[in-house]
Computed example of a mutant assay.
Amino acid sequence: MLREDGQEKYLFFDPHVYNILMHEIPNKEISHLSKLVQETKGNDWVEKLAKIGELNEKGHISQDEFNRLKAEILKSIS
């Protein structure tokens, strides 16, 4: 839940995206991401995180490559 201009707003994520956000990203980054969600108009970065998470889960990219790509995505939205 977010508060904006005194109104409550809710964000809903695809279950796969939620899984990535909750399991692939360390907890300290979750609080940073929640702030970014409030400031971000679109969710293109969420889709990118979901895609690289899927590639990592399937073994198409290594954990190191996933971490590098994730850092690039997060840097591009901050």
Score class of each variant (00 low, 15 high):
Met1Ser: 11
Met1Gln: 14
Met1Leu: 13
Met1Val: 10
Leu2Gly: 03
Leu2Lys: 14
Arg3Pro: 00
Arg3Glu: 15
Glu4Asn: 10
Asp5Cys: 15
Asp5Asn: 12
Gly6Cys: 04
Gly6Asp: 11
Glu8Met: 05
Glu8Ile: 00
Tyr10Lys: 15
Leu11Phe: 14
Leu11Met: 15
Leu11Gly: 12
Phe13Lys: 00
Phe13Tyr: 03
Asp14Glu: 14
Pro15Gly: 07
His16Glu: 07
His16Gln: 07
Val17Pro: 03
Val17Gln: 08
Tyr18Val: 00
Tyr18Pro: 01
Asn19Asp: 03
Asn19Tyr: 15
Asn19Pro: 02
Ile20Tyr: 08
Ile20Thr: 05
Ile20His: 08
Ile20Ser: 01
Ile20Val: 10
Ile20Pro: 07
Leu21Val: 00
Leu21Gly: 10
Leu21Phe: 12
Met22Ala: 06
His23Tyr: 12
His23Ala: 05
Glu24Ala: 11
Ile25Tyr: 05
Ile25Glu: 01
Ile25Lys: 00
Pro26Ile: 02
Pro26Glu: 06
Pro26Lys: 04
Pro26Ala: 07
Asn27Met: 14
Asn27Phe: 09
Lys28Gln: 06
Ile30Phe: 05
Ile30Pro: 01
Ile30Trp: 02
Ile30Ser: 12
Leu33Cys: 05
Leu33Gly: 01
Ser34Arg: 08
Lys35Gln: 02
Lys35Pro: 00
Leu36Gln: 05
Leu36Ser: 03
Leu36Arg: 03
Leu36Glu: 02
Gln38Tyr: 07
Lys41Trp: 02
Gly42Tyr: 13
Gly42Thr: 15
Asp44Gly: 13
Trp45Cys: 01
Val46Ala: 05
Val46Phe: 15
Glu47Thr: 13
Glu47Ala: 11
Glu47Cys: 09
Glu47Pro: 00
Lys48Ile: 01
Lys48Ala: 11
Lys48Thr: 12
Lys48Gly: 00
Leu49Pro: 08
Leu49Arg: 08
Leu49Trp: 13
Leu49Phe: 13
Ala50Thr: 06
Lys51Glu: 12
Lys51Ala: 12
Lys51Phe: 15
Ile52Gln: 01
Ile52Tyr: 11
Gly53Leu: 10
Gly53Cys: 08
Glu54Asp: 09
Asn56Ser: 05
Asn56Val: 11
Glu57Trp: 15
Glu57His: 15
Lys58Met: 03
Lys58Arg: 14
Lys58Tyr: 14
His60Cys: 04
Ile61His: 09
Ile61Arg: 07
Ile61Trp: 10
Ile61Met: 09
Ser62Thr: 13
Ser62Val: 03
Gln63Asn: 06
Asp64Arg: 09
Asp64Gly: 02
Glu65Gly: 14
Phe66Leu: 04
Phe66Thr: 02
Asn67Asp: 05
Asn67Ile: 03
Arg68Ala: 09
Arg68Met: 06
Arg68Asn: 12
Leu69Asn: 05
Leu69Pro: 04
Leu69Lys: 09
Lys70Phe: 00
Lys70Val: 00
Ala71Asn: 08
Glu72Val: 04
Glu72Tyr: 05
Glu72Leu: 13
Ile73Asn: 00
Ile73Gly: 03
Ile73Trp: 01
Lys75Tyr: 14
Lys75Ser: 15
Lys75Ala: 13
Lys75Glu: 15
Ser76Gly: 10
Ser76Thr: 10
Ser76Cys: 08
Ser76Val: 07
Ile77Arg: 03
Ile77Leu: 05
Ser78Ile: 11
Ser78Arg: 04
